[in-house]
């Protein structure tokens, strides 16, 4: 293991994030607060169930932002490196492809952590802060970062222009997040839609993270852990494989 090499990749990623920390910090906090405000002052009060619903909403909003930030961080980092040919330089270094992918994912974890922490702090003004299981919170947070950080790397390797990164955001991440139980419990859905939701990985992330915060969940925890564990291992292995092949980088 090239520990100095790995820590260098992480250092570069984290330094890059800190240079644009406002992008990791402010947009997710602002959008989460806007969601809370709308649900609290407009919808919630009208329906007389505000506080309980806000507490339900917070973990979903955090997870939605973590998913987005993990994806965007690795997608942009790798795409910019590919675009400027710096990725070619890194690919000639004595780093294993696993070390390289781990280093990039670590960047997504840091950015996701900044995002999650700042949303939790900001929403504490509306909702009493609580953590039911710190282990579950960390586990689902890491799974989200691995799965969607890996996806970001894969898309960046494949992408030929910046627009391609956004396409996945619009057509994959947003629908998966919106339909992943961030805003509702799937128990209110018709059985068919409920069944279809079980194929959405974001649902398990939200559900598991919500368990970590509130102690309540929709689907069996073992099922979510199994699906996400397998998916994270598959995404990570595929990313390492594609990085090694130099997919869309090496001719």
């Amino acid at each position: 293991m090239n520990w100095v090499g790995l820590s260098t990749v992480i250092h570069r990623e984290v330094t890059r994030i800190l240079k644009v920390a406002n992008q990791a910090l402010f947009p997710p906090v602002i959008s989460s607060l806007l969601y809370l405000a709308i649900f609290h002052f407009v919808i919630g009060k009208a329906r007389g169930q505000s506080t309980e619903y806000l507490a339900f909403l917070v973990p979903g909003l955090v997870m939605m932002s973590v998913v987005n930030n993990a994806y965007q961080n690795s997608a942009f980092s790798v795409f910019i490196a590919k675009y400027s040919r710096y990725l070619e330089h890194v690919l000639t270094m004595p780093l294993s492809y696993r070390e390289l992918v781990l280093g990039i994912l670590a960047g997504g974890i840091v950015r996701g952590g900044i995002t999650a922490g700042s949303i939790l702090i900001a929403t504490a003004f509306f909702v009493t802060p609580q953590i039911h299981s710190i282990g579950a919170v960390l586990a689902y947070f890491l799974l989200a970062c691995i799965i969607f950080g890996s996806l970001g790397i894969i898309i960046a390797l494949w992408a030929e222009q910046f627009d391609h990164l956004g396409v996945i955001n619009t057509f994959v991440l947003t629908p998966l997040s919106m339909l992943g139980g961030v805003f509702y419990s799937i128990s209110v859905l018709p059985p068919t839609v409920q069944f279809l939701t079980l194929f959405n990985p974001v649902f398990y992330l939200v559900d598991g993270f919500r368990y970590g915060i509130l102690g309540s969940n929709d689907a069996p925890l073992w099922l979510g852990a199994l699906v996400l564990g397998v998916l994270a291992a598959a995404c990570f292995s595929l990313t390492v494989h594609l990085m090694g092949r130099g997919w869309h980088v090496k001719e």
Binding site: R12, A81, S84, R85, Y86, H89, T92, M93, P94
Partner: peptide
């Protein structure tokens, strides 16, 4: 990894960050 440790490359096209 061992091979690359021994090589220093100055490529034709600049590939700085």
């Amino acid at each position: 990894r061992e091979a690359r440790r021994r090589i220093g490359l100055s490529p034709q096209e600049f590939n700085f960050d």
